[in-house]
């Protein structure tokens, strides 16, 4: 069963003093996927990431990397972009890239070849002899990304990779990450940018208050959360449509109201065909599709819903 997974966490627990930071967290990251790690600030994501990088060790539970217990040596196969980025400010960009690549275990020749390749790819050869402090924030982020991927890691752990980039460069990063995935790397993406989760991630885990509260395939999750909404584009009489919908206990969601496109919420259990056949009778349908809720809503609903439950229990 584990064969599909590059990284598996089994009941990982981490405690600092009296504070439980991770409480029996289990997750499986399939080979070649982009895996979203979501959660509010302070939920325990960073601690989990640090454990996955071998920076700290779990108090109990275990991490499997390529089906073996995660070893110190494995970190050469992991590339880590921490949320709090930084480089030696006074050190030259090229030297720094070589240094960090060699610390990851590359030989001098390999490190030189790889840095040359990536500097050319990002068209920043001219920065080689500049000090980091002379670069703009966005430029520094680019260098930092290169340093993360220089040693061709099979697992990339990226913590908020798009922060600090302008839209153009954020898009460039997105494309690079997807390309690396297509070339065989697995990516763990920790981010608060839900749009990029929808766009890029295959699976996610949502961690809140040190526990994993939601897990699975992104499309499936969205479907689970939103099997009761449809988006309809039509031509014809809107009032008549509203009357027909009321007859089958459906309603137009107010905030999504537009003249020719509406979102319709159906009662539980009603299938799309039933709604469609009722609607066809009164208006000309130009487009009809399932309206999946976006990850942003799911995030808020799940985290707040859980808090609501907790409050009720108290």
């Amino acid at each position: 069963m584990d064969e599909k997974y590059i990284l598996s966490a089994r009941d990982v627990v981490k405690q600092y003093g009296d504070v439980k930071v991770l409480d029996r967290v289990s997750l499986d990251v399939p080979f070649g996927s982009i895996y979203g790690l979501l959660g509010p600030n302070g939920a325990g994501k960073t601690t989990f990431i640090r454990i996955a990088n071998g920076i700290t060790a779990p108090d109990s539970g275990e991490l499997l990397f390529m089906r073996r217990k995660l070893q110190r040596e494995d970190i050469a196969a992991i590339g880590y972009l921490p949320e709090e980025r930084g480089l030696y400010r006074k050190m030259k960009v090229g030297e720094q890239a070589l240094y960090l690549a060699r610390l990851k275990g590359l030989s001098r020749a390999d490190a030189e070849r790889q840095t040359a390749y990536w500097f050319k790819r990002f068209e920043i050869q001219g920065w080689w002899n500049r000090k980091v402090e002379e670069l703009s924030k966005g430029m520094q982020q680019k260098v930092q990304f290169i340093i993360t991927v220089l040693h061709q890691p099979s697992l990339l752990i990226l913590d908020e990779p798009f922060s600090g980039f302008d839209p153009i460069n954020a898009d460039l990063m997105k494309k690079e990450i997807m390309r690396l995935r297509d070339e065989g790397a697995t990516v763990i993406l920790s981010t608060h940018n839900m749009a990029s989760v929808e766009e890029m991630c295959d699976r996610i885990s949502l961690i809140d208050k040190s526990r994993c509260i939601l897990q699975g395939d992104v499309t499936q999750i969205r479907r689970e959360y939103g099997s009761d909404e449809y988006e309809l584009r039509f031509e014809g009489d809107r009032h008549g449509l509203e009357t027909v919908l009321a007859g089958i206990r459906c309603r137009i969601i107010p905030e999504a109201e537009q003249s020719t496109t509406v979102k319709i919420r159906v009662p539980k259990g009603m299938k799309g065909n039933e709604l469609l056949s009722a609607v066809i009778s009164c208006v000309q349908v130009t487009s009809f599709k399932e309206a999946l809720p976006n990850m942003n809503d799911i995030f808020i609903r799940t985290v707040q819903g859980k808090e609501g439950q907790a409050n009720q229990l108290q």
């Binding site: 920076i55 110190r72 970190i75 980025r85 480089l87």
Partner: peptide
Amino acid sequence: TGRIVEVIISSVK
């Protein structure tokens, strides 16, 4: 303070 330490200790102890 330069925050480079986390990058480095993901490579060395």
